[in-house]
Structures are given as structure tokens and as C-alpha cells.
Computed example of a mutant assay.
Amino acid sequence: MGHGGNVLDELMTDHREVEEFFGRIEACPKGEKDRKIYADQATMELVRHSVAEEAYLYPAVREHLAHGDELADKETEEHSEAEQIMKDLERHDADDPEFDRLIDALMSEIRAHIAEEEEILFPMLRSACSPETLNELGDKVRQAKKMAPTRPHPSAPDTPPANKIVAPGIGLVDRLRDTLTGRGKHD
């Protein structure tokens, strides 16, 4: 988290980190407890990433791209679907067959979302925005990720200004819970 550079480079680095967690999940035998640990780590990264995109990237999409409202609405809807899967996943241990179904659904959904962003949305933004704008957005996204929740909250607001107000408080509670429970930590 917090890699430096413009917003597109920052977010693509996040994508690689999530894919690394997915690879670790896939490398573990079904039922292995580490699958849950890696799923929690992927969820933590995905939630922070999504909150930052919703706070800063998608408003920039709305502002700088033709049909930006439609594009941003579609991306936000995909986030909502993934967030609900992550919320459902929280309730299952790695040895539960439902865990396997949900983690497979999440990985499929996220991989499709990443491909769409990197192949379509990001090149459009790179063409439409100045390097300065992309760098400023990168700084804002990095800051947002530091304060963002680490657990899925499907009913929380996902558009500004409400998400920018609510997310830091929820994030504080989530990070405290993570610290107390050891969530996302590998033994």
C-alpha cells in the first residue's frame, strides 16, 4: 500500500498485489487454513483499493471522460458486487465448501474488473488527464488507502462526499479489530 507515482501506476501495483494473494490461495490445497488468511489479506487490500477509487478515481472519470458518469457507475456497481461476495466470504472458514465457491467467484469478478480497468479505463484516463493531474490523484489515493476500511461494508456510501466522511471512521474501527484479532496476519 502506498507505492508512489501517478494514480494509474499506484492502482496497477495494487492489482498485482491482489493477484499475488489470489495465486497464494490457488496454490494451497482446498480446506487449508492459509487460504482464509490469504483471502483476508486480499480482502483488506481490495477494500482499501476500492474505497480510494470510489473517492478519487471515479470522480475523475466523471469529470474527464466522455460518458464518464456511465463508466464510473458501472465500475462502482462492480465494486458493490465484489464487496458483497467479500462480506459473504467473511462468514466461512477455508474448510467450508461455500468458501471455495465464494473465493472462486471473487477471483473471477476481480480479475475481470482489473482487466477492464487496465485495458480500457486507465488508457482513456492517461490520454485525458495531464501528468500533474494523475500525480495529484495518486497522492490522494495513497492518502485515502491509509484511512480506508479493511473489511467489506456493502451498506456504506460509495460516492462522494458521504464516502469521504464515513470511510475514515469505519477504517479506524476495522484496523483496531484487525489488530485485536490478528486478522490478515500469517502465522
Rank of each mutant, 00 (worst) to 15 (best):
Y38A: 01
A27L: 07
I25E: 02
I37C: 01
K36W: 02
Q41V: 08
F21R: 09
M44V: 12
E17K: 06
G23A: 09
H49F: 05
V47Q: 08
A42M: 08
R16K: 14
E45Q: 12
Q41S: 08
G23S: 09
K30C: 00
G31V: 05
T43R: 07
F22D: 04
D40M: 05
F22I: 08
P29K: 10
M44F: 03
G31K: 06
E19R: 10
P29R: 14
K30N: 08
K30E: 15
E45G: 00
C28E: 15
Q41G: 08
V47F: 04
G31L: 11
K36F: 05
A42T: 04
F21T: 13
A39T: 04
P29W: 13
E32V: 07
D34A: 14
E32K: 07
F21C: 14
E20G: 05
H15W: 14
K30S: 09
T43H: 13
H49G: 00
D34R: 15
D40L: 04
Y38Q: 08
S50T: 15
F22Q: 11
Y38C: 07
F22C: 00
D40V: 04
Q41T: 00
E20W: 13
D34S: 12
G23M: 02
E32Q: 12
T43C: 15
H15I: 12
A39R: 04
D34C: 12
D34G: 02
P29N: 06
H49V: 08
A39D: 00
E17Q: 03
V18Y: 04
G31E: 02
V18C: 13
H15M: 03
K36I: 07
R35I: 02
G31S: 07
E45D: 00
R24N: 15
V47M: 09
K33P: 14
E17Y: 02
I37A: 08
P29T: 01
A27P: 12
E20N: 06
R16A: 08
V47I: 15
S50C: 04
F21M: 13
S50Y: 10
V51Y: 03
V47P: 06
G23H: 05
G31C: 11
L46H: 03
F21A: 01
E32S: 15
Q41I: 10
E17R: 14
A27M: 04
H15E: 11
D40Y: 10
Q41E: 12
C28Y: 03
